[in-house]
Computed example of a mutant assay.
Amino acid sequence: MTDSTPLNILLVDDSRIARLTMKHMLQSLEMSLNLLEAGSADEAETVLSTEHADIALIDFNMPGRDGLELAAVITERYPHIRMALVTANIQDALAQRARDLGMEFLPKPASVEQLGAFIRQDT
């Protein structure tokens, strides 16, 4: 990515309000970002079939497949995408499962600083 090329970030959360909140926080970072949205694992796969994403911020608890099941698919099909599990389900075992998939674990609600550090790879 160059300074003029936007970073494509996929937000995956079944809560429209949670996605909207994350969008506002990400837009406050004053970075060149293109934000993509999905309300489920299935929608995320549909988006990824037509759009390029550099980063995916994924909720854990969603109807249908959970965030870790989606992350396993993304890891297999799109290994270049960096991922973070952004969830209110704060359990050590869940955080470890996320790390085992190569994901960052961010407790929800994540702060602007936490999101910015992950996006900028300052973690």
Results as ranks from 00 to 15, higher is better:
51 E>Q: 15
51 E>R: 10
9 I>S: 01
72 A>S: 15
61 N>V: 12
95 A>R: 12
54 D>Y: 02
85 L>Y: 07
107 P>Q: 12
64 G>F: 09
63 P>I: 09
99 R>F: 02
119 I>L: 12
113 E>F: 00
27 Q>L: 11
56 A>Q: 05
77 R>M: 08
24 H>C: 07
88 A>F: 08
112 V>S: 11
15 S>T: 07
7 L>E: 04
65 R>F: 06
60 F>T: 00
100 D>R: 11
50 T>Y: 06
120 R>L: 11
92 D>H: 11
5 T>S: 08
25 M>V: 03
72 A>C: 08
52 H>I: 12
9 I>K: 00
43 E>T: 12
48 L>Q: 06
26 L>N: 03
26 L>A: 07
2 T>C: 03
56 A>V: 03
123 T>R: 09
114 Q>Y: 01
106 L>I: 07
14 D>C: 07
20 L>K: 10
46 T>F: 01
113 E>V: 11
6 P>Q: 01
63 P>L: 07
27 Q>R: 07
103 M>A: 08
105 F>W: 01
114 Q>H: 02
104 E>G: 06
15 S>N: 07
28 S>C: 05
117 A>H: 09
53 A>E: 05
111 S>R: 06
107 P>W: 01
24 H>W: 00
30 E>H: 13
13 D>H: 06
15 S>H: 03
105 F>H: 03
97 R>D: 14
21 T>S: 09
66 D>T: 05
47 V>W: 01
108 K>C: 06
99 R>C: 08
10 L>V: 04
79 P>V: 14
120 R>Q: 15
74 I>A: 08
89 N>C: 12
6 P>G: 05
45 E>A: 10
73 V>L: 13
120 R>D: 13
48 L>M: 08
52 H>L: 12
107 P>A: 14
51 E>K: 09
111 S>W: 02
108 K>P: 01
122 D>N: 11
89 N>D: 15
83 M>L: 09
94 L>F: 07
80 H>T: 14
25 M>H: 05
83 M>Q: 15
100 D>F: 02
94 L>M: 12
121 Q>C: 06
13 D>M: 03
45 E>F: 01
41 A>S: 14
52 H>P: 08
98 A>S: 08
60 F>C: 05
21 T>P: 00
120 R>Y: 00
95 A>K: 12
62 M>L: 09
42 D>H: 08
25 M>C: 04
17 I>C: 01
20 L>T: 10
90 I>F: 10
63 P>E: 10
120 R>K: 11
122 D>A: 15
44 A>N: 10
65 R>D: 15
52 H>C: 12
45 E>W: 02
109 P>Q: 09
26 L>S: 07
42 D>M: 09
33 L>Y: 07
